[in-house]
Structures are given as structure tokens and as C-alpha cells.
């Protein structure tokens, strides 16, 4: 089932999540008007989420996104790992 969630997050930009999920996340698309350097890191974040269980916790999502950000020395502007995790969690409800 494909579900959506979107929100203007507290850091200022819009995050939209489209997720195809049954028991586990099959496909995920994150879009929005935010900035992320280097840009390719978003692909890594999306890929990492695939295979996670539908009831994955907010904390787990934040840890996973944070790991990718740190490993790539990435910088987010207008969003945060927590904001992405929040919108994804909402889409998974």
C-alpha cells in the first residue's frame, strides 16, 4: 500500500514522503524544497529505509539517518534527521 505524508518541518522547509509498505518498507521517495549537501546522500537515506519493518521506531529511523549523514559528512539545511523520521513515521501509520 502506498501512503503519503508531508509537512513544513520546524527547520523551515517542506518534506514529503511517499512510502510503499506492507509488512516492510518496499519503496520510499523523499521530496521537498530543502537542501542537502552532498545531494546524493538522499538516495542513500532512501535505500537504507527499504526493508525496515512498518512499525520501525522513530528513534531507529533517526539513528539510521544520522549514521548516513555522519558517514558522508553531509549537511542538511531546512530539514533534519528527526524531521525526516517524523514525516516517515507519520506516513507509516
Amino acid at each position: 500500500m502506498i501512503t503519503h505524508s508531508s509537512r513544513k518541518v520546524k527547520e523551515g522547509k517542506i518534506v514529503k514522503v511517499e512510502v510503499d509498505c506492507e509488512d516492510v518498507i518496499k519503496k520510499l521517495r523523499i521530496t521537498g524544497d530543502f537542501f542537502l549537501h552532498p545531494e546524493d546522500v538522499l538516495d542513500d537515506i532512501e535505500k537504507t529505509m527499504v526493508g525496515l519493518k512498518k512499525d520501525v521506531s522513530f528513534e531507529t529511523l533517526v539513528i539510521k539517518i544520522n549514521d548516513i549523514v555522519k558517514n558522508n559528512d553531509a549537511r542538511m539545511i531546512g530539514i533534519s534527521p528527526e524531521s525526516i523520521a517524523e514525516v516517515l513515521r507519520e506516513a507509516l501509520k
Binding site: K16, T31, L36
Partner: peptide, 9 residues
């Protein structure tokens, strides 16, 4: 559109 945006959106 921005790099991360969905064009249809």
C-alpha cells in the same frame, strides 16, 4: 524545480 522536488507535485 529544486533537485529534491517531485516535478508532478
Amino acid at each position: 524545480i529544486g533537485y529534491f522536488q517531485g516535478i508532478r507535485d
